[in-house]
Design a protein around this nucleic acid. Sequence first.
DNA 1: GAATTTCCCCGACGTATGGT
DNA 2: ACCATACGTCGGGGAAATTC
Length: 410
Amino acid sequence: MVPNGWTLNNFNSVAELIHGFQFREHHFSESGVPIVKIASISHLRGVSLEKCSYISEEIASEFSKYQIEAGDVLMALTGGTLGKTCKVQEDIEICLQNYRVGNFKPKASFLDKDFLYYFLISFTVQKKIENIVNEAAQPNVGKADFDKIKVLTPPLPEQRKIAKILGTWDKAISTTERLIDNSKQQKKALMQHLLTGAHTQRKRLLDDSGKPFEGEWEEIEVGDLGTIYSGGTPSTTNKAYWDGEIDWITPTDITKQDSVYIKSSVRKISSEGLKNSSAKLVPKGSLLVCTRATIGEMAITAHEMCTNQGFKNIIPNKKTNIEFLFYLLTYQKHKLVSKASGSTFLELSKSAFESMKFRVPVIDEQQKIASVLTNADREIEVLEQQLADLKHEKKALMQQLLTGKRRVKI
DNA sequence: GAATTTCCCCGACGTATGGT
DNA sequence: ACCATACGTCGGGGAAATTC
């Protein structure tokens, strides 16, 4: 069970959990020393101090015990994101710990700080935490919970080697994240050049004969782009209407995914449900536009499906390229939002949506623009897949390294 | 009795759902 | 089609309960 040369220790004998201080309203001031709270913990980027509270420097000096230092390992000790962990980066400014943030200090002769960090985000610890989360409405972890946790402890040089290996994976992950950011920026710039409403600033692509497209884009109403249907919800009390074969899209299905195309929904309805509601099937290649709460999110159907009433769905006519329309409306999302009304949350009515006007080119130019932007999207997707693979492989490797199933050479 | 830890509740926000 | 409301989630505020 215990790998050769390693020892099995109680967590509390090799590391210490230090709770932060519960600062009260009278401690806070407009500026001064920032207080790290749960929301400040960002998994790969360390601590981010946006939107946090401050206390004045003179009061802060009384609480120097709670000062966070570079290399510290912090964890959220309560709430829904309990167990979220980060390593404090080198350029951290002076800041103090909120009492919901735990600071883990290793006992130097037993544990390396970086190794401790990887131990805390390992499957073993996160699983234990998950169990605690499921127990209570407002979950908490404290010293007592770590009493029950044992640490498989390699000799220090091996710990450092393991942490170093995992560190290179983290670097690869953050590099890929940066590449994704870059590609997204580039795509944004492309959209700006190709889709801007002002034709004088618009960049025109080349047609099949190699000449740039010419001519003003025609201003037309959304209603002229195709046929528009809303959706609906079958009665939730009738079981026969639910758990059928038909994909039934809600706004969350759209916001949850990154892809241009939507393939399936979380909840499904039956053909009975479809018949007895105002939900309507739209064919493959239709545009589902959220017009309620999260206005302007959209996706293209990958096959025949329907939606709840939070949508206006466009079945395109022959003059409309659906991918182009997706990019155009996404780019002009703010216009959709501005046409919406309602007090509790915004809603874009069918008539308001249908009568909105956009400048649109002929279908050949639409297709060219769509393919340029589709390529940009594909590039991002490839990177995102790489990122997912990296994360997955790192997780597997971490499990093997921390359990000693795979040993490193010193 | 003070410090620490846990508990209960609340507000903001987003969104699901039922009535008109 | 439109409107209002209920509900779930996240994380914070404040204080009770517990421990030192």
